[in-house]
Amino acid sequence: MNQWKNFSKGFFKENAIFSLLLGMCPTLGVTSSAENGLGMGLATTFVLVMANLVVSVVKDFIPDKVRIPAFILIIATFVTIVEMIMQAYVPALFESLGLFIPLIVVNCLVLGRAEAFASKNNVFSSIIDGAGMGLGFAMALTMLGSIREILGSGKIFGITLYPEDYGMLVFVLAPGAFIALGYLIALINRLKKA
């Protein structure tokens, strides 16, 4: 298989958020700023790559009937590792992402890739697939986070673009997440058709 195609499909054609609508909870929950979106995206990428790696290595030893619980266990292990690393090295980000870090376990994107790709393909293409899907997810989260941060508080990655008083506060709050993502997907649908 063409590895470049395998890697790049996660960014546009099969992007987890824009085309597959997987992993919506963290997408909406943590993207109140670009930095949070990027942090969450990279944490998910790490879990995705490692889980894909392990799943594709052990796929021949796992009986078919218990494969889903086994995959969940593998994913949960890496989520715990990410949780501990983030708590130790980036405590501020850990605080602001909060509940959504343990919830990477139930991100359908991670389990979906383990089931649909890593359990059928070799180790190398599984890693590439995990990296592509993960970075595509991170890109989408960062985009949504940037849009919400620019519209909501006039900043991007904490750098002020215009005074905060002119920002539309609603975009930082919960409703803004739904509305911003809705219009972003609509825009991408439109661009795809053109």
């Binding site: 803004g176 739904f178 509305i179 809705g182 219009y183 997907i185 649908n189 058709k193």
Partner: peptide, 17 residues
């Protein structure tokens, strides 16, 4: 066309929120 399906559902969810 672009708004059909998921996008309009998300915008509605936003208004509900």
């Amino acid at each position: 066309k672009g708004m059909q399906g998921a996008p309009i559902a998300l915008v509605i969810a936003g208004i509900l929120a």
